[in-house]
Design a protein around this nucleic acid. Structure first.
Length: 445
RNA sequence: GUGGUUGUAGCUCAGUUGGUUAGAGCGCCGGAUUGUGGUUCCGGAGGUCGCCGGUUCAAGCCCGGUCUACCACCCCA
């Protein structure tokens, strides 16, 4: 049979893994620096834990796991209860909420956790869109303070500064969006109105209005939303107009106040530009306050590389009320694509061998084994070529693996108790020296 | 989930209106060079033309299905 892997999944080769680990390590270090603690949850959750949390569209994309054995036989006879009982996790936020409720008595609130694990979606794959991909989440739950929003924005900035990537952090507040629906006269149509205006920059004003009409939003309400399309400029400029327009809505005023606080408190950022975007909506049903989205300001990838937002009652469905939380999620796979395209990965990523001992035969190899130990104890990544093949082949091996130094220990070196050190790429035959000198030289790099 | 494009050597791609034994470049392996790779020269291996079926005297080429990657919706990291 022909070897292959499921649609939308990928293997990650050594070169790719070094780069992926660089991203994960960078993000993880920043998470820890901001006081978040690690958490892992199972790949599978009960199906009912996940269904109904991501909206109608989201439910369709959940990867369901078939019942097994006798359970499956029963399900085939009585179809009323469905064929699946478990499901692969769709994101890290809902499993986190489940965890918080389940372990509420053991946790210290506000609880700050980070989680770096794969998630699965039964989506149709495209570029930058996979069925299995990694999310790197940080959430704080058990506090309504806007300081958390501020901290998370600064965390975005910190990570992308370390990765050397310029980004735009877009922010909006669901309360403002609710206010817009309220003022338009059809508050019950929030979701339809919001998902339509989310597409504004993509399809334009006319199509947005058309979509709202199709969803049953009245012409009068659509007219009421018109001021939204006129908004432009900085946050402070837009705020003034929004305050006037949305004056009748108490909830919108609260949203605007929260945004003002956040903008003010965030202060100067290094790599990110914080931008208010009144058309930013995001699909997930559970967001209630601030919502975030990050896009790369460099490269050609137009889709978002991070998302996030505040959810007031995610734990409610699991039986724990009044637990507000806010979180963000880094899309590692998309960040990878952007860094690769823009050439932002460091040229040398640790983990690869620094020194290769060429193999000249059994006696020499056994001697090299001792030298290897010394070199490794000094903290230098080194290896011995396993076969006594001819030198050109061993050199080619070093070149392909990107090993910068080759140690040559043949008959004459063995007798003199030295090692010939050759730098790859250098146009010479190398220099003979004692092993101690070799170690000292390599440690300088 | 809807509609569309694609698939030929490890990689990038040629392949005429359907016509004998499917090609090139790069890479790989061997030799020139048994202690010095990256240059050069010489030689070699490697293909069920994505898979299954159909039309035809004859299919890499036409038709149907299927899988994959990709594109547009939908949605999203």
């Amino acid at each position: 049979m022909k070897p292959s892997i499921p649609k939308g999944t990928r293997d990650f080769g050594p070169q790719e893994m070094l780069r992926r680990k660089y991203i994960f390590n960078t993000i993880e270090k920043v998470f820890q620096k901001y006081g978040y603690l690690p958490l892992e949850t199972p790949a599978m959750e009960h199906l009912e834990t996940l269904t109904g949390k991501y909206g109608e569209e989201g439910d369709r994309l959940i990867f369901k796991v078939l019942k097994r054995g006798a359970e499956l036989e029963r399900a085939l006879e009585d179809r009323s209860k469905g064929f699946a009982d478990e499901a692969l996790r769709y994101d890290l936020t809902v499993p986190f909420a489940r965890y918080v409720v389940q372990h509420q008595n053991d946790l210290v609130f506000p609880f700050k956790r980070y989680q770096i694990q794969p998630v699965w979606r039964a989506d149709r794959p495209q570029k930058g869109r996979y069925r299995e991909f990694y999310q790197c989440d940080a959430d704080v739950i058990g506090s309504t303070s806007l300081l958390s929003e501020v901290e998370l924005i600064q965390l975005f900035d910190d990570v992308f500064t370390q990765l050397g990537l310029k980004v735009v952090v877009k922010i909006n507040d669901r309360k403002v969006l609710s206010g817009i629906a309220e003022v338009s006269g059809q508050p019950e149509k929030v979701v339809d109105i919001v998902t339509a205006i989310d597409k504004l920059d993509k399809i334009g004003r006319e199509k947005v209005e058309e979509e709202m009409r199709e969803k049953g939003v009245s012409d009068q309400a659509i007219q009421g939303i018109a001021p939204l399309f006129e908004l432009k400029g900085t946050w402070n400029e837009q705020r003034v107009k929004l305050e006037q327009w949305l004056a009748p809505s108490a909830i919108a005023q609260q949203g605007l106040k929260d945004l003002s606080f956040t903008f003010e408190a965030v202060g100067q950022l290094k790599s990110a530009v914080l931008e208010f975007d009144p058309t930013l909506a995001r699909g997930l049903d559970y967001y209630t306050g601030a919502i975030f989205e990050v896009k790369a300001a460099e490269g050609s990838l137009q889709s978002s590389i991070c998302g996030g937002g505040r959810y007031d009652d995610l734990t409610g469905v699991f039986g724990l009320k009044g637990m507000s939380g806010v979180g963000i999620s880094f899309g590692a796979d998309r960040i990878y694509d952007v860094l690769l395209e823009t050439g932002k990965f460091p040229a040398e990523l640790g983990g690869s061998t620094q020194l290769l001992f060429a193999n000249f035969g059994e006696a020499e190899a056994l001697h090299c084994l001792k030298l290897l130990r010394q070199v490794r104890e000094a903290g230098i990544a080194a290896e011995l070529y396993p076969d006594a093949t001819k030198l050109p082949k061993q050199f080619t091996y070093a070149e392909k693996k990107g090993i910068p130094y080759v140690a040559i220990v043949g008959e004459s070196e063995l007798q003199q108790g030295v090692v010939t050190l050759k730098r790859m790429g250098a146009n010479d035959k190398g220099t003979a020296m004692p092993i101690e000198a070799l170690i000292a030289q390599l440690l300088q790099h």
